[in-house]
Design a binder for these strands. Sequence first.
RNA 1: GUCCCCAUCGUCUAGCCCGGUUAGGACACCACCCUUUCACGGUGGGCACCGGGGUUCGAAUCCCCGUGGGGACGCCA
Length: 478
Amino acid sequence: MPCFLLTFYLLTSRKISPPTMSQVRVRFAPSPTGFFHIGSARTALFNWLYARHTGGVFVLRIEDTDQARNSEEFLNVIYDSLTWLGMNWDEGPKVGGSYGPYRQSERAPIYKDYLQKLLDAGRAYEKDGAIWFKLLGERSEVYDDHRKKTVTKVANAPAVIDDQIRGRVERLEDEDFVIFRSDGNPVFHFVNVVDDIAMKITHVIRGEDHLSNTSKHVELFKAFGVQPPVFAHIPLILKQNGPGKMSKRDQGALIEEYQKRGYLPEALVNFLSLLGWSPKDDREKMLLADIISLFNFPGINQSNARFDDKKLAHMNMAYLLELPADDFVARARAYFEKQGTPVAAAALAADPAYFREVMLISQPKIKAIEELPAYTAYFFTEDFSTDAKVRDKIMGKGEPKARLAELTEMLATADFSSDTAIEEAIKALATAKGLGFGDYQSVARLAVSGTNVGPSLTGLFRVLGRERTLARLAKLAA
RNA sequence: GUCCCCAUCGUCUAGCCCGGUUAGGACACCACCCUUUCACGGUGGGCACCGGGGUUCGAAUCCCCGUGGGGACGCCA
């Protein structure tokens, strides 16, 4: 096929991967004006996945041209969140690269150069102290009653956007727009395009909210005489309740919140990958390596997705259940270390081997790391609270004190070396008394834990040990 | 208001491109089973093609119009 035909084919066919002659270069370009949220993380993830899928380069670029709204704190949140989620960047702040600097606040000379090109070509002019991009075409004054002012319209041909997800989109850009503010700083549309050119970005993967901006960008690329990159506008994430897209103010929107709550980053990544993308079969819980190898543009769908924290919680639980023992204990310990509560302090002060046992009998029972401190509190203090409702119910039925006495007598000499040994002993006692395991369980559980839910009773006894178990039984019997 | 995008269970989605399925999976929900509490797990259940027109022997699938949802319209990004 002749080269121009191939190019034509690639540009006009929907959802077809671009030429692989040169290496894919994608970028994630957050602006540090607020906390890092779910939507940004998903955009970053799709870029990262595409780079890893194609063996390309993932660039991190900081869009901090709006000095009034930027902060170093937010910048660090971005670095931390990306790192926590495992999205390492190949070029960008901290790691460098051949197209730096990677913070727009440090690229002023580059923007001046590109502005000069536009000025020289007669495609930019000054008005009201700002510099405007000049569209080509006949001009006319029109009153815009939405904006309540007269605007200058330019008779222009629609910009054509060949989008990997949307297909061919046409949008008319018919008004000049500001590219340099009167304070001398360039605006988003300008720096975005200039940097994509200067950094040789091949694919722009971003939220659909930018689709309407893309006509501006296409006009700028044309003015610079550069072929625009391949665009892929991904669907937005809608807030869980109520109308509109998710924003940083919405419940559950912030990445650092999940980090603090002890969510597993691999679970969050898996969940996020499924918001707007699917491997097209029934797989949901997937190895990262599989997500990378399966990820592509045709798998991305076109409609917005609503965030569902229940599904995320379920994914997190599924990962938690499979975590190797050492890993689970380490993450549990890290979570306790961040708490700073008396219960957490007591847990951390306990013998590490004991802490480990407590965590491991709890692992199959909990849905999230954040449940652990409350779930295991009675292991680390004798001053644990008792659920009054549960106590009244259990103590008010049958002969709980008799069961307690029988258990106490038997446990004094029982084998505490394994769960099965304890189980056999309790079963033997129950059989001897003509009762069942259940007759002993509820009251014993109440005595040692103050509640009616928790790990297996035998595990409880074994981990607590004979002395503490007997002491707690005695306390309730008193 | 103008422009752009989108439309399958409550939610995430498969199926759509290239018309023929009992419209599949997962979360959530309900029931039952397992069980030593709580979970996990297992089995089963209820639950969807937005509406209307076309095209066709046949439409979730193709076309048009409605309607609904989302986005953009800044010297924010």
